[in-house]
Design a protein around this nucleic acid. Structure first.
Length: 194
DNA sequence: CGCACGATGCGCT
DNA sequence: GCGCATCGTGCGA
């Protein structure tokens, strides 16, 4: 079984957000394996007004303050789930939101979960944080899972050279929107927005 | 205890 | 481009 990339969580959260590009997000269940190449991420840091951790540890964001390498899943807009990789040591409260992946395995399961129709472009499966969470079947049930050893994990994928990485302000937030803490793969059709 | 709103997506125009 | 679905969370009263 492929291993969680050893150095992925060793640097700053911004570094982790960049280095997650090209990694494989893998979800193994009874019904099969679903996998995608990460093409877009956002960092949420300590003392970051846009971060769920900004107002301190609560039941909702507890996983964000837990040990690194855990999956932080939150529910929003009354219907959507988004997934994050917890970074930094226990008590800090930083994470990386996975905003988009390029489907690599388990297309049939993704299509079924997303209600995909033949007229839809494939990008509709996973070009947004809530879309990919749905395509992978992830919800708050998976909140707190250990990505280093479990059915949901991160594995080595493809190398994304610096010249293919673009940065921008984060999407869908009103505060600290000027921080260029969003990372995405230049030219990927699966990026949520350019 | 009430309420405004959100790390969004979809369908319609 | 825009309005709306839909509800947990957290803040203020």
């Amino acid at each position: 079984m492929p291993a969680f990339p050893p150095s992925l969580l060793s640097g700053t959260t911004l570094k982790t957000a960049r280095n997650l590009l090209g990694k494989r997000l893998v979800c193994r269940t009874r019904t099969g394996t679903v996998c995608g190449i990460i093409v877009e991420t956002e960092a949420y840091l300590r003392n970051d007004p846009a971060s769920h951790s900004y107002r301190g540890r609560t039941r909702r964001n507890d996983v964000m303050f837990g040990p690194p390498g855990r999956l932080y899943v939150y529910f929003t807009y009354g219907m959507h789930h988004c997934i994050n990789v917890v970074t930094q040591r226990e008590g800090v409260g930083e994470a990386v939101l996975i905003r988009a992946v390029e489907p690599a395995e388990g297309l049939a399961a993704m299509k079924r979960r997303r209600g995909w129709k033949k007229t839809m472009p494939l990008t509709m499966l996973t070009n947004g944080p809530a879309k990919l969470a749905q395509a992978f079947g992830l919800s708050t049930r998976h909140n707190g899972m250990d990505l280093r050893r479990g059915s949901v994990t991160i594995e080595e994928g493809v190398t994304v050279p610096d010249r293919m990485v673009r940065r921008s302000g984060r999407i869908g937030i009103s505060v600290a929107a000027e921080k260029r803490w969003r990372f995405f793969v230049k030219g990927s059709p699966f990026v949520s927005r350019t």
